[in-house]
Structure formats: structure tokens, C-alpha cells
Simulated scan of single mutants.
Amino acid sequence: MGAMAMAVPVVRRHECASVYLIHAAGTFENGLGVVGKPLAGNLTDVLPSFAAVGLDSSAEYDATVAEGGQTMGDLIANLSSTCPEQKFILSGYSKGAMVVHATDLSDELKSHVCGISVFGDPDDAKGLAAGRGLADVWPIVDPVIGVNVAPFCNDGDAICDGGLDIATHLAYATDGSVTQAAAVLAAACA
């Protein structure tokens, strides 16, 4: 699987859980990472049949984004073949948000994705990677911001908003963004 490998910190495991969170962690993070852990915890509280896994990150930026997108897509395909009724939530923090954008799915697999959340997304319109033109590219059928897609970019965030404040980029796990995302995702995936 190259530089990006799957970790297996499962929050709550059900054989063929109704909803499965796949979270791509940020740079130098492993497993669910600093944002994925509280997101999974919030979703565990509201979704009765739920499981979660995190994709590990490595320091190689461009290569891991492409590899991460491939890994995420392969995981969805494998889980869908085993559990055809399963729905997926895709999530990513920082570089992990770029992995979500880079996940190329068939229309059939996109129909299994019920919700997406990204935090501190470099592909955002004002983000560091805005030139890639992926701000509005989502691996889901009929993406609607606030309904089945929940993007979070704090004002002044140095990574997604063109600002100079790295502290705002590090705040998503504790500033209420995760709780808001879980509410949107739970409603979209219930």
C-alpha cells in the first residue's frame, strides 16, 4: 500500500456496520488522529451500528495524497463487496482532506457514501493547494454543503484560509467543529 497504510483503531465494531467512517489523518498523524478520534466518538453516540478506521499518513505530501485516495477507494470497494448495504462517511483533516478529494469512485461506489467532512482543507478555495481546483470535487452523489458535505475552515487558518494563524488550524478537534460535523453526518447517514 505504499507510504499510506490503514490503521485499525475501530471505535465500535459490528459485522457489516450500517455506517463506517474512514478518516484520513493529517500530516504526521496515525490512525484516526486528533480530529478523527472525537468525530468517531460523537458518531458512536448517535449511530447504533457504527465502525471507524483511520488511514495513516506519511511525510511525503504529494505521493501520499494520491496513494491515500487510492487506499480509501480500495477500502470502500472491498468493504462494499463484503457488506453491500453499508454506508460510508469519508473524512479528512488537513492533508487528509486532500485525500478525500483525491478518492476516485465509480458512481456505484459514490452511492454508498452518505456523508463527507473535511477540516482545514488545503484544497479549499483560499487554501495552500487551491490551484489543484478540487475545492468542489467530492466523492459522493449530489454533494450539498451542510446537508451531506461538512467542510470546516476557520477564519485565518494558514492552511485553508490563506491566513497566518496556525493555531486556528490546530483547533478543529476542540472548537466545536467536530460536534457540528457529527450532527450533519448523523442526519445524512441515519
Rank of each mutant, 00 (worst) to 15 (best):
M1A: 07
M4F: 03
M4D: 03
M6S: 06
M6E: 07
P9F: 02
V10K: 05
R12S: 14
R13S: 13
H14F: 05
E15V: 15
A17D: 07
Y20N: 15
L21E: 04
L21S: 01
L21Y: 08
A25G: 11
G26R: 00
E29W: 02
N30G: 10
G31Q: 10
G31D: 06
L32S: 03
V34A: 11
G36L: 13
K37P: 02
L39S: 03
L39T: 00
L39K: 00
A40E: 04
A40G: 08
G41R: 00
N42R: 15
T44W: 14
V46D: 02
V46K: 15
L47Q: 12
F50R: 08
A51E: 15
A51N: 15
A51C: 08
A52T: 07
V53L: 13
V53N: 09
G54V: 06
G54C: 09
L55T: 01
D56A: 13
S58Q: 09
A59S: 15
A59G: 15
E60M: 11
Y61G: 00
D62C: 05
A63V: 12
T64R: 03
E67I: 01
G68K: 00
G68E: 01
G69C: 06
G69E: 00
Q70A: 09
Q70M: 06
Q70F: 01
L75C: 03
I76Y: 00
A77L: 01
A77C: 02
S80E: 03
T82Q: 15
C83Q: 08
P84R: 14
E85D: 15
E85C: 02
Q86C: 07
K87G: 02
I89M: 09
S91L: 13
K95H: 14
K95L: 13
G96C: 06
G96L: 03
G96H: 05
M98F: 06
V99R: 02
V100M: 14
H101D: 10
H101K: 14
H101I: 07
H101M: 04
L105Y: 00
E108M: 11
I116N: 05
I116Y: 08
I116F: 06
I116V: 14
F119V: 02
F119T: 00
G120W: 02
D123E: 11
D124E: 14
K126M: 10
K126P: 06
K126H: 14
K126Q: 12
L128H: 01
G131S: 13
R132K: 14
R132L: 13
G133V: 12
L134E: 03
D136H: 09
V137A: 15
V141I: 15
V141A: 15
P143M: 08
V144S: 07
V144W: 05
V147A: 14
V147C: 11
N148F: 01
N148C: 03
A150L: 10
F152C: 06
N154M: 12
N154A: 14
D155Q: 11
D155W: 02
D157T: 04
C160H: 11
D161W: 10
G162N: 10
G162M: 09
G163S: 11
L164V: 15
A167K: 09
T168G: 07
L170N: 07
Y172H: 04
A173C: 05
G176W: 10
G176N: 12
S177V: 08
S177G: 03
S177F: 04
T179F: 07
T179P: 00
Q180A: 13
L185R: 12
A186F: 09
A186Y: 02
A187M: 12
A187Y: 12
C189P: 02
C189D: 04
A190T: 08
